[in-house]
């Protein structure tokens, strides 16, 4: 019965590795080939050609692109992400601590938005066409499209400037306990919650509406099952499966939104790291940061696929019969 599962996972894993590799090529291309001359990009058009040549040699970017790529990949495999030009120190430790910070923020976001979004979506579907459904749909839709920096400003004005309920800065004092950390994380998390809420609610609602109108739900009703049992046993499971994939896909988006939010709240995460590297034209750092974000997304979608496969018997048991 699980005969088809092993090969499926292997294939999925191989595809993820392929995606990762292609990703490294794309990122490398963007950081090393596209600028043409990294040192010139860093030093600006007026710099002394000798200084440019010297810097290129120091960065190693005077070598052929393939060679640079291979040495970069070789470094990555051994955990060496290269040297930061701006900080004049190895990149890897920066990435590590920034990633941990960003994961804390992302976890806060998802802990708030997933139950909220799914709950609202289920409620909207159960009251389809009624005022509460319209309210959730319209609110979700309008909130989804508000850029994080816009909602951040509004939130800062209300909660940090006017009411002074929450700290403005996302960075907590060193040695703070989890509760204080959480307090600092709420305000930066909210803009992302606002963006993701509508999307998750809408997808949940769509899945619910489809499952509610499915023939098998009608079968369950006609069996004489009480509505609660119909809902919990027959509708929810089929309706929420596709939502898992949606949530995973949003992880990647959330990481993108982190760039804006982290910079706005001066939070030391992967987003502000990438942005800082971009501003400083610190290509080694940029390359490593972007690749980390991409890799994180690839891993979450892989996990989501595995979870969906485990939960969906049609996928788990392979094709027909």
């Amino acid at each position: 019965m699980s005969g088809a599962l092993g090969p499926f996972l292997l294939k999925r894993l191989a595809l993820s590795l392929l995606t990762l590799w292609l990703l490294s090529v794309v990122v490398f291309f963007g950081c090393q080939v596209l600028p043409g001359d990294p040192a010139r990009a860093i030093l600006g058009p007026l710099a002394d050609p000798r200084a440019v040549a010297a810097l290129n040699e120091k960065l190693g970017s005077d070598r052929p692109p393939v060679e640079i790529y291979l040495s970069w990949m070789g470094g990555l495999i051994t955990g060496d992400m290269g040297q930061s030009y701006a900080y004049r120190s190895p990149v890897a430790p920066f990435i590590g601590s920034a990633l941990v910070n960003s994961l804390k923020l992302a976890a806060t976001v998802f802990a708030i938005v997933v139950p909220l979004g799914i709950g609202a979506g289920v409620l909207a579907a159960l009251r389809a066409g009624r005022p509460i459904d319209r309210l959730i749909s319209v609110a979700g839709l309008s909130l989804t499209v508000i850029p994080e920096f816009v909602s951040s400003i509004a939130l800062i004005l209300v909660f940090a400037v006017l009411l002074r309920w929450l700290p403005l800065s996302a960075s907590w004092p060193a040695g703070s306990g989890p509760l204080v950390q959480l307090q600092h994380l709420i305000l930066p998390a909210l803009p992302l919650v606002i963006v993701l809420f509508g999307y998750i609610a809408r997808m949940t609602r769509a899945g619910m509406v489809e499952a509610l109108s499915a023939d098998y739900t009608r079968t369950a009703i006609l069996k004489g099952l009480p509505w609660r049992t119909v809902l919990s046993r027959h509708v929810l499971r089929n309706a929420l499966l596709p939502t898992i994939t949606v949530i995973a896909a949003q992880m990647g988006y959330a990481l993108g939104g982190l760039v804006v939010v982290e910079s706005l709240f001066r939070y030391q995460g992967i987003g502000s790291l990438v942005l800082g590297a971009a501003r400083a034209k610190d290509f080694a750092m940029l390359q490593a940061g972007i690749l980390t974000v991409g890799a994180f997304f690839v891993v979450t979608t892989l996990l989501a696929d595995i979870v969906t496969t485990l939960l969906d018997p049609r996928l788990r048991t392979g094709g027909r019969r």
């Binding site: 990647g252 990481l255 993108g256 760039v259 990438v274 940029l286 997304f297």
Partner: peptide, 10 residues
């Protein structure tokens, strides 16, 4: 697999 804003940034 990369957030839009990051690709654009790159």
């Amino acid at each position: 697999s990369l957030p839009l804003i990051i690709v654009a940034l790159l």
